[in-house]
Amino acid sequence: MSADLPRVLVVEDEPAQREVLSYNLEAEGFAVSRAETGDEALILVEEDAPDIMVLDWMLPGVSGIEVCRRLKMRPETRAMPIIMLSARSEEVDRVRGLETGADDYVIKPYSVVELMARVRAQLRRTRPAAVGQQLDYDDIHLDAETHRVTRGDLPLKLGPTEFRLLSTFMEKPGRVWSREQLLDRVWGRDIYVDTRTVDVHIGRLRKALCQHGGSDPVRTVRGAGYALG
Rank of each mutant, 00 (worst) to 15 (best):
E12I: 10
L154V: 05
I83G: 03
V32R: 10
V92R: 13
C210E: 13
P81H: 07
H147V: 09
E19G: 00
V32C: 12
A117D: 08
R151A: 12
R219N: 00
P75S: 10
L21S: 04
S86C: 02
P60R: 04
L85R: 06
P155L: 02
I107V: 15
L154G: 01
A117I: 04
K207N: 04
A16D: 10
F169V: 04
D194I: 05
V20N: 05
D216I: 00
L165H: 00
W187K: 03
E19F: 10
T77Q: 01
Q17K: 03
D39Q: 15
L123K: 11
K157T: 15
I52Y: 11
W187I: 13
R204T: 08
R179C: 03
L165I: 06
D190M: 13
P6N: 09
T161M: 08
K172W: 12
P160C: 11
Y105A: 13
L85D: 07
L9E: 07
P155V: 09
E12V: 06
V62L: 12
Y192L: 09
V32L: 05
T100V: 12
I82K: 00
L55D: 01
R175T: 14
P160F: 07
M170Y: 03
V8F: 05
A208C: 06
Y23V: 06
E99V: 05
M53A: 12
N24K: 03
D51W: 07
V92H: 09
R94D: 03
T195H: 13
T77V: 03
V10R: 07
R222W: 08
L42Q: 06
G225E: 10
P50V: 08
L115S: 03
A208D: 04
A27E: 13
R69S: 04
R164F: 03
G214T: 01
K207Q: 15
A102G: 07
T168M: 13
A87G: 11
P75M: 07
A129T: 08
D93L: 01
V112K: 02
D93I: 01
K72L: 02
D39W: 03
R118Q: 11
G64M: 01
W187V: 14
R118L: 09
